[in-house]
Amino acid sequence: MSVPHPYAARLAALPVRRHETEVLGSVTAWWEYGSADSTTTILAVHGFRGDHHGLEPIVAFVPGVRFVVPDLPGFGATPPMPGTVHDLEAYAQWLRAFAAAVAPGATILGHSFGSIVASAAVASGLAAPRLILINPIGAPALEGPRGVLTRLAVFYYRAGAALPARWGEALLRNRLIVRAMSASMAKTKDPDLRRFVHDQHDRYFSGFADRDVLHDAFVASVSHDVRAFAPKIHIPTLLVAADRDDITPIEAERTLATLFPDASLVEIPDVGHLIHYETPRAAARAVAAFSDPASGA
């Protein structure tokens, strides 16, 4: 049965164009939303196991802005980079190259794992006027409120990589496990919105290329956090954090904001690590005001 998309009408009103660009020996698939003539461009990087679809609800609530949203290498429609360990250094290098080729001078936005990739890229030389981090990973994942679950996830991804290929792939794409992950992150009590969240994860959470790239990206996601890069980022930075995030507690996000030379923090109540699905309007309002104070969401 089809699950209604609560933001479909807004998305349908936006021009959307699919593109492909060769970057570091691989062809990156990316989507362009809004007018190509907009004076503001935001290059948005999705989170772990997702693809560009995950950021569409936020895009839908930011009018007048051109969004460039790629699928990370090894996820969605973008194949892995050949002969590459997909660690954080590789993803940061890819983002620097992609931005130079497609959206030089764009504001950079990253969600969750994308917040680490975006921060690492900016700290290592990606020129951007502003940086936006949504649900930023502001502390070690193993130390978060659900550190035990993160350790279980470590075992899960290790098992997926170590088992015979057929069994490992089946484990990593198991729909019951994907649903359990989705249920653990969702905070909304709205049954329709919960169905939408689960449907999005069912559709896109297993769109990774293979178990090797998935394992590499997972290791990168739990081995790094934004704190290491914050002092090196000297452009205006916006953190959009959730007060019920089980991966980085709000207290850690408040501390993270103090590590940047120039950062502001917007806290969204009653939501966890799925700001982009559950409260995209609130996130978009913060993004629009930060990107262009004259705009609204």
Rank of each mutant, 00 (worst) to 15 (best):
Arg158Glu: 15
Gly147Arg: 09
Leu163Lys: 02
Leu142Ile: 13
Ala120Met: 03
Ile132Leu: 10
Ala165Ser: 13
Leu109Asn: 02
Ala120Gly: 03
Ala161Trp: 05
Arg151Thr: 05
Pro164Met: 04
Phe98Met: 04
Ala128Gln: 07
Arg146Pro: 07
Ala153Pro: 04
Gly105Ile: 05
Ile108Arg: 07
Ala106Phe: 00
Ser124Pro: 12
Ala120Thr: 01
Pro104Asn: 11
Pro129Leu: 02
Ala123Leu: 00
Gly138His: 07
Thr107Ile: 12
Ser112Tyr: 10
Pro145Ile: 00
Ala128Pro: 13
Ala99Val: 00
Val148Gln: 11
Gly138Asp: 07
Ala100Pro: 13
Ala103His: 08
Gly160Tyr: 06
Ala159Cys: 12
Ala100Tyr: 09
Gly105Trp: 01
Pro164Glu: 04
Ala153Leu: 10
Pro145Gly: 14
Ala106Leu: 08
Arg166His: 05
Ala99Cys: 10
Ala161Lys: 02
Thr150Met: 12
Gly110Arg: 10
Arg151Phe: 09
Ser112Pro: 02
Ala97Leu: 07
Pro104Cys: 03
Gly125Phe: 04
Ile116Val: 13
Gly125Gln: 12
Val102Tyr: 05
Ser112Phe: 02
Gly144Ala: 08
Tyr157Ala: 04
Gly144Arg: 00
Arg130Ala: 11
Asn135Ala: 15
Thr150Glu: 15
Val102Gly: 06
Pro145Val: 01
Arg96Gly: 12
Gly125His: 07
Ile134Trp: 01
Pro136Trp: 06
Pro164Phe: 04
Ser115Ile: 01
Ile108Asn: 10
Ser119Trp: 13
Ile137Pro: 04
